[in-house]
Design a protein around this nucleic acid. Sequence first.
DNA 1: AAAAAACAGTTGCATTTTGCAAATAATTTG
DNA 2: CAAATTATTTGCAAAATGCAACTGTTTTTT
Lengths: 151, 151
Amino acid sequence: MENIRGLFQTMTKRFGLLNKNCCSVGGMEISLVQSHILYEIDRLKQPSVQQLADALAMDITTLSRQIQKLVQMGLVKKTPYPEDRRIFILSLTTEGTYIAAKIDAEINEYLTEVFSHMSEFEKETVLRSIQLLNDCMAKSSVCCKPMYGGK
Amino acid sequence: MENIRGLFQTMTKRFGLLNKNCCSVGGMEISLVQSHILYEIDRLKQPSVQQLADALAMDITTLSRQIQKLVQMGLVKKTPYPEDRRIFILSLTTEGTYIAAKIDAEINEYLTEVFSHMSEFEKETVLRSIQLLNDCMAKSSVCCKPMYGGK
DNA sequence: AAAAAACAGTTGCATTTTGCAAATAATTTG
DNA sequence: CAAATTATTTGCAAAATGCAACTGTTTTTT
């Protein structure tokens, strides 16, 4: 079998590129990190800043500032959390949801195109493989420690 | 089938994290980009600066400066190319090769750990899936345009 | 073969991003 | 209740980024 790291490197490089290309939507310039932030807020549903930082394995000060920008852009909303007044709950605004969905759609479209080069069976296999891989990475003690646990 | 983008996002996020963790080797602090540069120089064998920039889908001015640093660190060598005196050929120094191998080994070790959570058959399937995915991404007209063509 | 166009690579900025240390505010612990 | 902890934000200084402009070299055009 071939160089395993090489396979991963190539794959992630290409997907990362795809992500980058998908960032400017509807006149609004979104950076790659910002795109990831939007995605993760959407996924986590009402995370705090800290939770988000953990999920993204990102320095919280950097995140804090990026969020400020996204709030200014009107894409993210920060809501004080009554039970614990240190905490802010993050959510997407209507526009933020729209942008996130737009990015999502674009990336999925690209992926669909990529998958069109394989048979339905191959596609299923590949997707199940990635799923399995994610599960095993989550299990792994050594890698991805600070990552979000579940799936 | 589940959200496809989500699968990719999770996977690349985790692998990216792994990459980041593997960057500081032997007292030498290597940034993530620098690690990718080393990897790609090694892979391409004697690329020019421009070729490398294309392969990494990176702005050439940024790359130029990063290479200067790597040269200063003694990891990369720049050799004038006689046939075309505009061009510099890049290669790893002995130490650069050592560092790159070290990073490679560490990442592969992590990956091995991850794969230890699955059967040999599953592992084979996953690796072949990624291989297939890479091939299809390379074929795709729409995604990854500026990426290195072959595999 | 001279002038023009194209190319490889490097700098000059000016902007953005990053992360550590420190500050602030709120909560929990002993 | 004082001390320790936690969540979040700022100060600051370093690093990374990318466009425009520049140098030097090769190729094209005519």
